[in-house]
Amino acid sequence: MDVLWVWESQNLAQRTLEHLRMFGIALALSVVIGVLLGLYLYRRPKLAPIAFNVLNILETVPTLALLVLLLPLLGLGEKPTIAASVIYSILPIARNTYTGLTSVERSYIEVAEAIGLSEREILIKVRFPLALPLIAAGVRIAVVFTMGVVTLGGLIAAGGLGAPIQTGIHLYDRDIIVVTGLWVGLLALILDGVAALIERYLRGRYGRR
């Protein structure tokens, strides 16, 4: 198997950058939207069951179907790919944010109230920091989801590492498929590893003991 040939002919360095760019944008959007949604639902807990049901249903739509459904709205390429990643990743992040904020030990909240923190100050100074480990766990799940969806984006001309896999399938070239596939897998492992380290740090810093 000629790894070097695949790497150069398929322009994998360039493809990797494209891939990580999409991944980065998608994950950043997911974190922002997911955390904000989690916060919003914490303030409006009556909406939480409905919101999580809707997100759960979205979660069950197959990725390919979702990409196709987004085509008429967003066209081909990066946009529908990023949108699909975000749609999948909101659930774990929003759910963990919500759970993290609502499951802070009652005694901490009571003390915070008793010494004179306002609702808002309790949220910022106590609830949110103590929810961080759980939020990080949600983000870690989103990392894996996003990696998968971005790779599938190759099917709808989004570029990235999905593109050479597509090429490999069309040309019936086993080398291209295997080399690119392994590379995507390795990248996913590394990113998940980084996310795990961040999660572990936050658990040590803000976790319960």
Binding site: S107, Y108, E110, V111, A112, A114, I115, K125, V126, P129, L130, R205, Y206, G207, R208, R209
Partner: peptide
Amino acid sequence: GYVIQQIGLFPH
């Protein structure tokens, strides 16, 4: 000022 048995120092 308020002091309780469970102390309730914030762990973070």
